[in-house]
Design a protein around this nucleic acid. Sequence first.
RNA 1: GCGCCUAUAGCUCAACUGGAUAGAGUGUCGGGCUUCGAACCCGAAGGUUGGGGGUUCGAGUCCCUCUAGGCGCGCCA
Length: 564
Amino acid sequence: MNYAYDRALGEIARELSQRVARLAPALDGAAQAAPAINLNPTRDASHGDFATPVALAAAKMWKGDPYEIAQGVAAQGSDGMPAVAHVDAVRPGYVNLTMGVPFWAEVVRDVLRMGPDYGRSTELQDAGPLVIEFVSANPTGPLVVVQGRSSALGATLSEMMRFAGCAVTAETYVNDAGAQLEALAGSVYARYATLLGRETALPDNGYPGSYIVDIARKLIERDGPRWLDAPFEERHSAIGRFARDLIVDEQREDLDRFRVHFDRWTSEAALHDSGAIALAMDELRASGHTFERDGALWLRATDFGDDKDRVLLRSDGRPTYLAADAAYHADKLRRGHRYLLNILGPDHHGYILRLKALVAAMGHPGSLEVLLAQHVTFKRAGETVSMSKRAGDLVTLREVMDQVGVDAARYFFIDRAPESHLVFDMELAIEQSAKNPVYYVQYGHARIASILRRAEGDGKSPLLERGRAGADLDRLEHKAEIALIRRIADFRRTVAAAARARAPHRLAEYAHAVATDFHGFYTDCLVLSDNDALTSARLSLCLAAKTVLASALRLIGVSAPEKM
RNA sequence: GCGCCUAUAGCUCAACUGGAUAGAGUGUCGGGCUUCGAACCCGAAGGUUGGGGGUUCGAGUCCCUCUAGGCGCGCCA
């Protein structure tokens, strides 16, 4: 990856750095240390294109006047920085840089040259190899809406981190062992027996959903009545497996449709069967971070910041959920991953400290990070519906996809910071109108596509070709053109910073901003005009904007339509 | 009782991790199509960033405290 943008900014940073160093007052005969140059794109165009607070930092170190230092830095103008048009010192002590037109032309050229790879970087190379684990559902029913949110978050974050140069493995864990699966098997059996004429009540902790009846029907289809009087153990495990497989298949179908794809699925039951848990327990014992009490094996979690010690093996010898997690996380680490990132639902935050303690006890302190996907509440007909675990109120991911479509669902789920409680407005998501931010962004993309089609149709294909080659880019100097290019130039930084901050919503915000800047450009600047050079340059800009919009949408998991 | 998350415009949310005049969308009011898609654009109004204190050149952001809401605190998963 080779960005003209980087070369120019690097040159500027070096020049400014030298200027600051020259201004450093001597102390005891030696020049004092100077602060590093931090070049930030400005939020407000009236502050130029890039700004650095270096004079503020220097003033702090040297106990000087920041404005005076800023003036000193700005004094030699753009000498040694050909990309810069002018330099201003501004109170309280900023140095603002305004870039020249050729600098922006180079940005467009970068995009045209790199296409879908524009924006890739190596900024998060050090954040990997990393496993992102998310969704990790009980296979006891359809995926619900919170899992929709965490799957959208996980998938987007994975893509963003890869784009920023991090090696990512996306994984999910199937909780197909323990009490919940017992309850599932019991529930299916009850429906199965009832369907076959032997009225049977659901177990106490059973699942009332109608999908259980569907599973029971399929069981009859496959096996007939053979389980009706089979020995409990045998029928229980057979029915449990049957139901789990069906449900996991359905979950996988839903996720597929939701454009969420895992590199790896791990079965908790398989960890029990393979002896992986027993092995993990041996290793933990050997680490010295466990102890025995009341016949149970405990993890000394309080040594690692948890508020209680935690049971790994119950007094009857059965492993807890935490023990299975020990085996799973040991496996992730053994496969060569340096960092682990788990996305958990809001009801699991009590689990965070003990998971971290567990990983630390296994010899990898600090390598596990937990991201909490907060609650989703629904707003329908102006009324908010809280998602309780009560069977009746549960909204499934599938329902959401059916009602609002995959694009809107993906967008809405990541449009808010993960830790903020999300209010999902069904009507707004369904609405195909200006109010809906998804369509606003997609419309931008479709509008560009339409212009490009029009260019072909109008016999301007040669100009389009010149545009692809980036022939007349120095013609781009209109305010709206520069604003759009500035935004495009910010793509790589936005992806990397958002990935680092685990903040996919910033990418949605960014895509929206690109669309806004494009619409502004479209309103102010006629693309297909009589001026051939200008037409070709503006077609270049359209191509670049389209490329970046499509990339941002791709990372979010939203389609970029040519027409709508 | 202890712990985590949250509190910013009427509503839903941002604010690049301590930087400049706190920004978007939506809602309200006003304006813009005989040129490439009006699913668009421009303008106006709207704020004591829950309250109080502190740290410093500078705080929505950091520390303390109070208030309100959500969630969690099992040899459940």
